[in-house]
């Protein structure tokens, strides 16, 4: 029963969602749909501390066990709890100047910087791994080169044909390739959703006994 009852709850919730999406006549059906949405949002919102609990457990363990680089774990925990205390008890809303400064001067730039380091890895990977080993690799390489030149002003400066070619690749063979994959993914998504709803797919429940 430790698995069957949760599956039944999921099935009922999912079926209510589907039924109230398609049968929209009576007012109460609309109300049930909106209420289920609210329930989903509320449940989701209260799950937000999972990240905090996980980080506290991982870094707390590293600190107590004095593992390698444990002092940086203190930085992570101080920053996490510090910003929570500042936001909830001092700033109190997102229009607070202190909060605005925090996200625009600290969190947003750090977030952008973390992602931006990828440019170095992609440049290095392109240089090392992008080899014309066979005909298909050559097609991939040529397509990439045309795209890289055609989508910047330099391409048009070299020849007006390059951006036209890039546009053609993007609008025709790219659409064909991506659409084929997306249609396959949509089939897969629908099949998985059906398996989840009827309880065949249970992997999401994890190995909790």
């Amino acid at each position: 029963m430790k698995k069957e009852l949760p599956i039944a709850l999921g099935l009922v919730a999912g079926l209510i969602w589907i039924i109230t999406t398609y049968f929209t006549g009576p007012r109460w059906v609309e109300t049930v749909h909106q209420e289920l949405s609210k329930w989903y949002q509320l449940a989701g919102a209260y799950m937000v501390m999972v990240g905090v609990v996980n980080l506290t457990r991982v870094h707390g363990h590293r600190i107590t066990q004095k593992k390698k680089d444990w002092m940086y774990s203190i930085v992570a925990l101080v920053c996490m709890f510090g910003i929570m205390i500042f936001g909830i008890f001092i700033a109190k809303d997102s229009n607070n100047p202190g909060w605005k400064t925090f996200y625009s001067q600290i969190i947003a730039p750090m977030n952008a910087t973390v992602y931006s380091t990828l440019v170095f890895y992609i440049a290095s990977a392109a240089y090392r791994a992008f080899r014309i080993r066979n005909s298909q690799a050559t097609i991939l390489l040529v397509s990439a080169l045309i795209m890289m030149l055609g989508r910047v002003p330099l391409g048009a400066m070299i020849s007006p044909v390059i951006p036209q070619l890039a546009d053609w690749i993007l609008n025709v063979p790219n659409v064909a390739g991506m659409r084929g994959i997306q249609i396959g993914a949509a089939f897969g998504g629908i099949a998985t959703a059906l398996r989840v709803l009827v309880g065949i797919e249970r992997g999401y429940m994890g190995g909790t006994e």
């Binding site: 440049a123 090392r128 992008f130 014309i132 890289m148 002003p153």
Partner: peptide, 23 residues
Amino acid sequence: MDAQSFAHALIILFIILGNIGYI
């Protein structure tokens, strides 16, 4: 966009050099 153009040109140059080296 200028910087974007030249960065792409540099990466293309390195891809070409990498392939010459490979051949």
